[in-house]
Design a protein around this nucleic acid. Structure first.
Lengths: 92, 92
DNA sequence: ATCATATGCAAGTAACTACTTGCATATCAA
DNA sequence: TTGATATGCAAGTAGTTACTTGCATATGAT
């Protein structure tokens, strides 16, 4: 399993999470389009694919195939690790 | 102001935050020692200094001088951005 | 003043990361 | 099948990052 923190380190990847948070279940094509239109992401489709792969390895995004289309879903659970690590008072 | 996400991307920097979370107000020397002893961090003092600089730019650590000693303090507030960005339901 | 302690600065390097380009594959419709 | 759509794979490259080494500075104690 990949590194959640490293996955968040790139601004484009964070925008991908933003996009999926606003509209879950987008295809790759849809994502690329909306990232370009609404967030001024000029990267190529391949670049986006590679970013999504990193997010997937971190457990933040899951991919499901439907015909010739990839559908992407957001999973925020891995982010809770951050909260629990430093934002929660611990008793030891 | 630096990037909180990039600051968290490095495992050694996260251990520094862990250390300060457990014992706030450590000096550089103290930090280096405890990182080596308790977390098997083999990096040089300079490496640690550079990591702290990144954490400082991200607002996660503040440094105060006391004589020939640097005292480090943890600040978790910047981490709340992460929570509010994806872990909080938004209404728009 | 002298010496050890605690830290600062800077250049160099190896590894990693994001990105691109070019081509390949697969699905759907007509 | 043929063509267009949607995505996959892989090699190459520029820029970044973490790290080290060597030397400099500054504080505190004797």
């Amino acid at each position: 399993m990949g590194d959640v923190y490293k996955a968040l380190a790139d601004p484009t990847r964070r925008l991908i999470l933003d996009e999926l948070a606003e509209r879950d279940g987008q295809s790759l094509f849809e994502l690329c389009g909306r990232l370009a239109m609404r967030h001024d992401v000029t990267s190529s489709r391949q670049a986006i694919t590679q970013h999504i792969a990193v997010l997937e390895e971190a457990g933040l995004v899951s991919v499901r195939r439907s015909g010739r289309t990839r559908i992407h879903h957001l999973h925020t659970e891995p982010l809770r690790e951050i909260v629990e690590r430093w934002l929660t008072a611990r008793e030891d």
